[in-house]
Design a protein around this nucleic acid. Structure first.
Length: 271
DNA sequence: CAACGGACCTGCCTGC
DNA sequence: TGCAGGCAGGTCCGTT
């Protein structure tokens, strides 16, 4: 599921309900996530007050004062805020129970997500080290992409999906941004001009911001903190539309596999 | 380093 | 109807 817009939608949904709430209990029904949930997570969290909910890349960071809970939603994860007494469904692996009786519930059918704890500044955690800039920050622009890409032979789509280059751009939005910028996904990253990278950086920012405004994209699993899907799916120009008419020129969109990922583009509009 | 394939895991859809 | 195979929003890890 979650690329940056879905994670940010989740963050915005849960934050107002968590700020200054205290954690009174933690229920781990299945701790077998991408990495095992720390066995002492209930002990680590119980009694702590949540001071902030931040996001770095696709990680949610819950500032608990004296430590941070790190949550990643993987491919199929979601976080919902539930009233007391809602019985758990399959794949509802972890509940964090708050002092108002409600619970933050983590669901993740494929268990590619993660729930970790760090007592250090979260940016020092091994998973957050070496990450590239946030795409919506000013430091991320066409000049940055152009400079970093010189000499690279990998396809530009793989380049912008590499978290060391820029974070938060997953398969859906990489396809969408490349279409908006008129760049063919297979083109070697190192042979794209500065001007075209400028267009690409603008396109990445625009598509992510629009997706956030629509509450993210739901293909199957993603729901926001209230359990509702995101509505950006209806705005997608190319992802999931292989064989359909290009919104720009009307020719059939092509669908290929690039780096084992479904890739859709218009051979006419994207060069 | 950079690039690439495989791995992790469950559910859903397609085609035989 | 049943079953095998392929595919899905991520990203780490090992090999070349």
């Amino acid at each position: 599921m979650p690329e940056l817009p879905e994670v940010e939608t989740t963050r915005r949904g849960v934050e107002p309900h968590l700020l200054d709430r205290s954690i009174v209990g933690v229920v781990v029904r299945d701790g077998r996530l991408r990495w095992p949930v720390p066995g002492d997570l209930p002990g680590l969290l119980t009694g702590r007050r949540i001071a902030a909910v931040r996001r770095r890349a696709k990680y949610l960071l819950f500032d608990c004062g004296g430590g941070h809970l790190i949550v990643h939603l993987g491919m199929t994860g979601s976080l919902r805020l539930l009233e007391a007494g809602v019985p758990p469904a399959p794949h509802d692996h972890v509940d964090i129970v708050l002092d108002d009786g409600r619970a933050l519930r983590f669901r993740d059918p494929r268990r590619f997500g993660a729930i970790l704890w760090t007592a250090r500044p979260p940016g020092e955690h091994v998973l957050l080290q070496g990450l590239g800039p946030e795409p919506l920050d000013g430091a991320f622009d066409g000049g940055y992409l152009h400079g970093l890409s010189r000499g690279r032979t990998a396809p530009v789509k793989a380049f912008i999906m590499d978290g060391r280059v820029v974070v938060g751009v997953g398969n859906i939005y990489a396809n969408e941004a490349l279409f908006a910028a008129g760049i063919r996904p297979q083109r070697a990253a190192g042979q794209i001009s500065a001007l075209r990278y400028q267009r690409l950086a603008v396109a990445i920012k625009a598509v992510l911001e629009r997706a956030i405004a629509h509450g993210g994209t739901t293909l199957r699993d993603f729901v926001d903190s209230t359990g509702k899907p995101g509505y950006f799916r209806h705005e997608l120009q190319v992802y999931g539309r292989g064989g359909e008419a290009c919104p720009g020129c009307g020719r059939a969109l092509r669908e290929v596999r690039l780096g084992q990922r479904s890739t859709v583009y218009c051979a006419q509009c994207q060069r």
